[in-house]
């Protein structure tokens, strides 16, 4: 069986400010877990994939529960703000559709009531649904530690499956996403065998901005999930689209280029061959959807 399938004994604290949380995290010397929504961490503790003597609940820290959005400044999202709140905030859903494409399919509603984008990022799974959207939006991670604060671009955050660049005692406070222009569109899709309650076999997020005429792609970014040790940007495929017309042919060609970034593993969720193929399919489909969203807006 997978470990104890029960939780070992631990202490629980719920600090109300970030500094206290960071201090507690540092003092526990690697034997502490940060609890946001808990939908990954409690499963991992129960299955013995992680161990903790201390669980630090960060949901009492106001900064970590933010959801601030303005058209000109963009989105500031607390690390523990639940997905459900993201999904149901209309202007956020309109500005960052790829993010909401992801947050509305992370588990079912019960999971989304608890799980946060920040937690999804910190869990650092290669298949995490919210990370490809964060990559294409060029989100910035704002970290807090015993030594103070720092910010890093999201593409520097994940380092390996389940690993990230958080230093001992450091935790994610907020994520900021830049404002979006009316000529930008984005989309996220994953492939799963069922229609819900599943882990991505492969996934893709696409973002593009058109020029004023709407006939040329000015800028594009494509990110893939579940096809590499971390979610990855498909740089070559993204660059290919710049200056091109937003057509199915070009989206298909970008899909073919995106496949080259995919270096997946064989496991029960999919074979290497299938995942590489899906990376191309999903790139093409999300580009088309992103484009359609610009046209419809």
């Amino acid at each position: 069986m997978g470990g104890l399938t029960t939780l070992s004994g631990f202490e629980y604290v719920a600090p109300t400010d970030l500094a206290a949380a960071a201090t507690a995290l540092r003092d526990a010397g690697g034997r502490a877990c940060v609890l946001a929504g808990g939908t990954d961490i409690l499963v991992q503790l129960r299955e013995g994939m992680r161990a903790a003597d201390l669980v630090i609940d960060v949901k009492k820290i106001p900064e970590l529960l933010q959801l601030d959005y303005a058209t000109d400044s963009g989105l500031c999202l607390g690390a523990a703000t639940p997905c459900y709140q993201v999904n149901t905030t209309a202007d956020v859903a309109e500005a960052y559709p790829a993010l909401v494409d992801a947050t509305r399919i992370i588990g079912g509603w019960q999971i989304q009531s608890r799980a946060s984008v920040g937690g999804n990022l910190c869990n650092s799974s290669p298949a995490a649904d919210s990370i490809p959207p964060l990559l294409v939006y060029q989100a910035v991670c704002h970290l807090a530690g015993p030594e103070g604060r720092r910010s890093i671009p999201v593409h520097e955050f994940c380092t390996a499956p389940g690993q990230n660049s958080l230093q001992p005692g450091e935790l994610l406070a907020t994520l900021t996403l830049p404002p979006q222009s009316a000529s930008a569109g984005s989309a996220y899709q994953r492939f799963i065998p069922r229609n819900e309650m599943d882990i991505a076999v492969a996934s893709a997020a696409s973002w593009m901005e058109l020029d004023d005429s709407g006939s040329t792609i000015q800028s594009a970014r494509i990110a893939l999930g579940a096809v590499a040790p971390t979610p990855v940007l498909a740089e070559e495929a993204s660059q290919f689209l710049v200056g091109k017309a937003p057509t199915e042919e070009n989206f298909a060609a970008a899909g073919a280029l995106a496949r080259q970034v995919a270096s997946p593993i064989d496991d029960m969720r999919g074979t290497v061959e299938f995942r590489v193929h899906l990376a191309g399919v999903l790139t093409q489909r999300t580009l088309a959807l992103a484009h359609r969203r610009i046209q419809e807006s």
Partner: peptide, 24 residues
């Protein structure tokens, strides 16, 4: 059931043993 070559089931959960959901 997914078994590895040692006869170990790899998907002993409702996440990975995929019974139809409401949406399927």
């Amino acid at each position: 059931y997914f078994f590895d070559d040692q006869g170990q089931m790899k998907n002993a959960s409702f996440l990975d043993y995929r019974i139809p959901t409401f949406l399927d």
